[in-house]
Computed example of a mutant assay.
Amino acid sequence: MAKMRKKGDLPEKACICCGRPFAWRKKWEKVWDEVKYCSDRCRTEAKRKERQG
Rank of each mutant, 00 (worst) to 15 (best):
K36A: 03
F22M: 09
E50T: 06
R51F: 09
R43T: 04
R48P: 00
C18M: 03
K36M: 09
D33N: 10
R43P: 03
M4F: 06
G53R: 15
Y37S: 02
C15W: 06
E45R: 13
D33M: 06
S39P: 09
E12K: 13
R51V: 10
V35E: 05
P21T: 11
A46V: 01
P21K: 15
G8A: 12
V31N: 11
L10G: 03
G19S: 07
E29Y: 11
G19I: 06
C15D: 14
Q52M: 14
Q52S: 15
A14P: 00
E12R: 15
G19P: 07
A2I: 10
M4C: 03
D9H: 07
K49Y: 00
V31P: 01
K6W: 04
K3P: 00
K13H: 07
M1V: 05
C42L: 05
K7D: 08
G53S: 10
G53N: 14
W24S: 04
R25S: 07
R5Q: 14
K30A: 08
V35M: 09
R43K: 12
K49I: 04
V31R: 14
D33L: 10
Q52C: 05
D40S: 14
R20C: 09
R51Y: 11
R25L: 05
K36G: 01
R25Q: 14
K3R: 15
L10N: 06
Q52W: 07
K13E: 11
K30C: 00
Q52A: 15
A23D: 01
K27R: 13
V31H: 12
Y37W: 13
W28G: 01
E34V: 01
K6E: 07
W28T: 04
E45T: 13
K13Y: 02
A46M: 08
D40L: 11
E12Q: 13
E29V: 02
K6D: 08
S39I: 08
R41L: 10
A46P: 05
G53H: 11
E34N: 09
Q52R: 15
V31G: 06
K30L: 08
A2C: 07
V31Y: 04
A46T: 09
G8S: 14
P21D: 07
R48F: 02
R48T: 03
E34W: 05
P21Y: 05
C17F: 07
P11E: 00
R25F: 00
T44E: 14
M1W: 06
A46D: 14
K3M: 10
M4K: 08
I16L: 09
A14I: 00
K49A: 13
C15A: 06
I16Q: 08
C17W: 02
C17K: 10
E50L: 14
A46W: 14
R43I: 03
P21R: 12
R43A: 15
T44N: 12
A46N: 12
E34P: 00
K27L: 01
K27E: 04
W32P: 06
D33W: 03
S39D: 09
K36E: 13
K27T: 08
G19A: 02
E45F: 06
E29L: 08
P21A: 10
A2E: 12
C18H: 03
Y37T: 08
C15E: 09
W32D: 05
C38F: 03
W24M: 12
D33E: 15
I16F: 02
G8V: 04
C17L: 00
W24C: 09
E50S: 14
A14E: 13
K7P: 15
K13S: 02
K13D: 06
